[in-house]
Design a protein around this nucleic acid. Structure first.
Length: 200
DNA sequence: GTACAGATTGAG
DNA sequence: TCAATCTGTACT
């Protein structure tokens, strides 16, 4: 169980998106204990060329600033006025690329997650980007945090290996506004057959 | 000041 | 399948 280092996050974004599958996201809350989930679904956003990216054409605002940080920082923001989206910046400083974590498999802290989600159904605890943020207690507090040097939130390698043939590459979700060219890019990855993937 | 998007969700 | 829902963002 080793914490992922800077060199992991600064690899090419599509590599990181695939390598992230099977890694563990850990949130050690002093108040609520340890919450752990295994990453089973990711999506890559590769600005400034990617029209679906918030940093398309290099657009930089207060909201997406964390996307430009060197790989390993948290980019978290609100959608639909109520759901948080947890992203991890990748690549180098000032290069706006990131990976959206879309689904987790709950590993530790199940009871607390059920309370946070007001739900007892195991599967719907973390099988969606907004849901996993609620279950893991992720919100604006973590904006811009460096996952490499933080002890409250970080990712670790528990040795789970996902065989290449079990990584499914498909098109991203909810980005039709970017037009067919970008919408069809196979930049969404998930673990084949995993029960917690948001949508097959 | 204000219109409005929005990388969703859950109910039907 | 589809509409509810609402805050921060990005403009004027």
């Amino acid at each position: 169980m080793s914490k992922l280092s800077r060199s992991f996050y600064t690899q090419p974004t599509l590599i990181v998106a695939k390598e992230l599958l099977g890694k563990y996201l850990v949130h050690r809350s002093t108040v609520h204990g340890k919450l752990v989930g295994k990453i089973v679904e990711t999506e890559a956003y590769i600005g400034p060329h990617d029209k679906a990216s918030h940093a398309y054409k290099g657009k930089r605002t207060q909201r997406n600033g964390a996307e430009f940080l060197i790989g390993g920082h948290v980019y978290i923001y609100l959608v639909y006025g109520m759901y948080w989206q947890f992203n991890i910046s990748t690549s180098g400083h000032n290069i706006p690329e990131c990976i959206l974590v879309r689904a987790l498999e709950p590993i530790e802290g199940l009871e607390r997650m059920k309370q946070l989600r007001y739900n007892n159904d195991m599967r719907s605890l973390t099988n969606g980007p907004g849901k996993l943020c609620a279950a893991m207690e992720l919100d604006k507090r973590f904006y811009g945090i460096d996952l490499v040097n933080n002890d409250m939130i970080y990712l670790e390698d528990q040795g789970d290996v996902v065989a290449k043939k079990n990584i499914v590459a498909t098109s991203r979700i909810g980005i039709d506004y970017a037009g067919p060219y970008w919408a069809q890019k196979k930049w969404r990855f998930y673990i084949r057959g995993n029960w917690f993937v948001s949508k097959v």
